[in-house]
Amino acid sequence: MQFLVKYGSCDVYVSDKASQEMTAKQNSHPMYRSKPSTEFLRLVHDLDVTKVQKALEFAETMAKQGSRAIQGHLKSMSAFDKAAQAKFAATGQWPVSALNSLPSDGLNPQLTVDQIFDFSPVGMGLQKYFHLGFADPAYLERVQRVGNVLEKIVQHFTTGFKLELLTSSEVNGWNGRAMPARLGDRNGIRDFFGDPQMQYHEPRKYVAEFDRMQLPIDYVAFCERDAVARTIVHEMSHIAALTEDVLYKHESFSKNEAERTTSAGKMMPQGIAVPGRAKPMQPLTGVARDRKANVRSSDLIDSATYVHNADSYAWFSRRMMKDLQPVDFQKFKQA
């Protein structure tokens, strides 16, 4: 394993096998055809160092935008106090002070409070990736949980971790793998939030000095930068809050035709009707899986479980940056 580059408190390393693989590919890939044959480290410093640093910066910015979006959403909710709701009940209008605090400029003030929050950019993201609608009795608590996890993700970009670039075979064909320094049972985020039904049976064990993240080097080098950044946020959620792989987006009924034809898929909700859209929004929905045992259930994942899902945090953060910072999103994507 050789040191490659540093980004903030993150040290990036590359395995010997990955360096050999990239050297072998350098003349066959279109990116490298115009380059003379070089040693691996020169190849890395020509291209991959920049790609790694920009992907990490993109991921950190994505997570920060997701965290800011949630904090703004919670601040908006605080404006809808009892006095504001009383005025709406009496007049059918929300106070101007309350409406001015909303992140959803231009929404019709005649909308119900549920619609005002659910159809804001943040509300749409919460519905799509976490199954969180304003009418949910536990809405405030669960939104705060989402915010807490995103805050932890942001913090972990500055606390020190190792990113290892490996061959695909070294990460078992996955796009990424997280190896937290602390270990516990596979429902770590539930313990993190103190859910009484899912406590650790023994104290967490610290098995390494640093948190580690592993990515395939060709994925970082050749895939779209926003995909790599999203994967980093996904893996960082495992490290920061011990999230679980409840459901990957590509497994969702709305993205996987094979899943829709199953008995569980036929129970897929009809989607959420959104004002101004002809097509309903389909939340992330699928069946439960035991990934360690490679067993697929026929039961739909319970809506409350998505707050534990790593991919939900990754895709939510990406959506918040794309919707709320579109210019910056495109700059990072095309840089």
Rank of each mutant, 00 (worst) to 15 (best):
S168K: 06
R142E: 13
L165M: 14
N175Y: 15
N187L: 13
I189H: 06
G160D: 09
Q155C: 04
L140G: 03
M179D: 08
R145N: 05
T167A: 04
A135M: 06
L166W: 03
F157L: 04
N172V: 06
K162L: 11
Y139G: 01
T158Y: 12
V146P: 03
N187M: 15
Q155G: 06
T158G: 13
Q144K: 14
D136T: 03
F192A: 01
F161L: 12
F157Q: 07
S168P: 00
D195R: 06
E151H: 08
I189E: 05
L183K: 15
G160A: 07
W174M: 11
L166I: 09
T159C: 04
G176W: 04
L132R: 06
A178F: 07
V171F: 02
V146L: 07
V171T: 08
N175S: 13
I189W: 12
T167E: 09
N187S: 09
H131W: 15
L163S: 05
A181P: 00
V143W: 04
I153D: 05
K152N: 13
N148W: 02
R142G: 00
G147Q: 14
L132T: 03
T159P: 00
E141W: 10
Q197L: 10
V154F: 05
A138H: 15
E164D: 15
H131F: 12
N172C: 02
V146N: 08
D185E: 11
E164Y: 14
A178K: 01
N148T: 15
R142D: 12
R190Q: 10
P180N: 08
V149P: 03
R182N: 08
P137L: 08
P180Q: 11
N172Q: 15
E164Q: 14
G176D: 01
E141D: 13
F157R: 05
R142H: 14
F157T: 09
G176K: 02
R186M: 09
L163D: 09
T167M: 10
V149A: 12
V146C: 03
I189K: 02
R190K: 14
A178C: 06
I189Y: 10
L132A: 07
D191P: 00
V154C: 04
E141L: 08
R182V: 03
A138W: 12
L132Q: 11
N187F: 15
L183V: 13
K162M: 00
E141V: 09
A135K: 14
G176Q: 06
G194Y: 03
G176S: 10
L150K: 00
F134V: 05
I153Y: 06
G173L: 08
P180S: 04
A135Q: 12
H156P: 00
D185I: 01
V146M: 06
D191Y: 05
G184D: 11
T158K: 13
